[in-house]
């Protein structure tokens, strides 16, 4: 009993739970463990997975970003419009990436330099940016002129769709950034104790701006992938994304109080969210119930986190 508790509340507890859940689902839910379904599952978590990479940094440094959903929609829209206008997909993508970074940098600048609460700041930019997406598109979906744009999401490499590769690559890059670079350790230090980090020579202001700018950039990547998959720029795309992403991170053991985060945890968190949804779809459970289940999963995750930190004390 005690050793079971130890495993579940230990560092790898979540991975164990995930493996067990995966095994049970594979055995009991028909059509779950098929190549088609697994690829579909992975495809469905691409947006959450990509954005979770940088949300992890935000949360680890004791910040918060609610504007990610809007930014994904806005940058997707920009990518489509700019590609259409310039006639060049590459140029369109660059403009989208830049505008995403800009949104993030503005968030970071306001939060770090004026010391305004991240929750409030990003709540404001969430609405501003969603508004901008509606304004540039006049509230309508914008179609893509050059069919080459579809290839971003449709193309495959070794039989696996490009977006999944992109997500996997970002997992590796951000895992490395968190664990093996000064940037990652400084992020965690700021989350652990911002004042001590400042006195230890960490440039807290510029770190914050960088973290948010990076978040904006990665949202743009997700926005482009999403626009390509749904073959248009949708001003109302990705609503509520911020909550799914934050849930996935918290599920993955990222502490909302800052200072604690792990890439493997976040990946598992993203997968759990994806699997729950996928299984409910396979079992034909009504969408209304899915909200309830998602909320329950989040609650359980937070309770687990609580147990874990009180066990280690």
């Amino acid at each position: 009993m005690n050793s079971l508790k130890k495993i579940l509340l230990g560092d790898q507890g979540l991975v164990v739970i995930f493996a067990v859940a995966f095994a049970i689902v594979s055995l009991t839910v028909p059509n779950f463990l098929t190549e088609r379904n697994i690829l579909g599952l992975l495809q469905s978590v691409v947006t959450i997975g990509i954005v979770a990479c940088t949300m992890m940094f935000c949360l680890a440094s004791r910040d918060f970003d609610l504007s990610v959903g809007s930014t994904v929609a806005f940058t997707g829209m920009i990518a489509v419009i700019a590609s259409n206008m310039t006639g060049s997909i590459v140029l369109g993508l660059i403009i989208a990436l830049l505008s995403g970074t800009l949104v993030g940098a503005v968030n970071g600048f306001v939060i770090a330099c004026f010391r305004i609460n991240a929750l409030i700041t990003t709540l404001a930019t969430m609405q501003i940016v969603r508004g901008l997406a509606l304004i540039v598109s006049d509230g309508r979906a914008v179609g893509i002129n050059d069919p080459g744009f579809y290839q971003l999401a449709l193309s495959r490499f070794l039989g696996i769709p490009t977006p999944i590769w992109v997500m996997g690559a970002l997992f590796i890059v951000f895992g490395f950034l968190l664990n093996r670079t000064v940037f990652g350790k400084n992020t965690l230090a700021i989350g652990g104790n911002p004042e001590a980090a400042r006195l230890a020579g960490v440039n807290v202001v510029s770190m914050r701006i960088w973290i948010f700018a990076l978040q904006g950039l990665i949202c743009a990547v997700a926005g482009i992938m999403l626009a390509s998959r749904i073959t248009s720029g949708q001003p109302n795309a990705a609503t509520g994304l911020e909550l799914s992403v934050i849930s996935a991170c918290v599920l993955g053991g990222v502490s909302l109080a800052g200072g604690r985060a792990a890439m493997t945890g976040v990946i598992v968190g993203v997968m759990i969210m994806g699997i729950a949804e996928n299984v409910m779809n396979l079992l034909n459970i009504q969408a209304f119930y899915q909200y309830v289940v998602r909320g329950l999963i989040l609650l359980i995750a937070v309770l687990l986190d609580n147990l874990r930190s009180s066990a280690s004390r």
Partner: peptide, 30 residues
């Protein structure tokens, strides 16, 4: 208030400042 970085290891707490000298291109040398 000003010293310990809560939630992080002894190792990280010691190295937080001096690691910039031992991390070429910002990459840690564990």
């Amino acid at each position: 208030h000003d010293g310990i970085i809560q939630g992080r290891s002894i190792e990280e707490n010691i190295a937080i400042s001096s690691r910039r000298h031992m991390s070429p291109f910002g990459i840690l040398q564990p």
